[in-house]
């Protein structure tokens, strides 16, 4: 039986291509659902014009798909609520500040 914790752990291994922190710590993942072997992920992006949207979605599918027993991974991209810097986790803030990114 796949658990939501396993999915969140997998998502925490998917990094943003620009900064060394995960899509979870960037606050881009809004929700995770598990229906037996099918996974539903609701996520957003920091900018509508982000050129890495398809790449990040592919990374999400790939990483979550590695969980044993997972058969399908559906990523639903949403724009509401709109992502802001306030979505970044405390851990994400520490990482960004370490790399000199002002918040």
């Amino acid at each position: 039986m796949v658990t939501t914790d396993q999915v969140w752990d997998a998502l925490a291994r998917v990094n943003d291509p620009e900064y060394p922190l995960s899509v979870v710590d960037l606050g881009m993942v809004y929700g995770v659902g598990v229906n037996h072997k099918d996974i539903q992920i609701e996520m957003t992006f920091t900018a509508i014009g982000c050129p890495a949207i398809d790449m990040i979605i592919a990374d999400v599918r790939d990483e979550v798909g590695k969980i044993p027993e997972v058969q399908g991974v559906n990523v639903d991209v949403v724009w509401s609520p709109a992502w802001t810097k306030a979505c970044i986790t405390d851990k994400g803030r520490q990482i960004l500040q370490y790399y000199g990114v002002g918040l």
């Binding site: 957003t44 900018a47 509508i48 014009g49 949403v78 724009w79 509401s80 609520p81 709109a82 992502w83 802001t84």
Partner: peptide, 10 residues
């Protein structure tokens, strides 16, 4: 409606 909040923010 669900798409415009982010667009207007930008």
């Amino acid at each position: 409606h669900m798409s415009l909040e982010k667009m207007l923010q930008e």
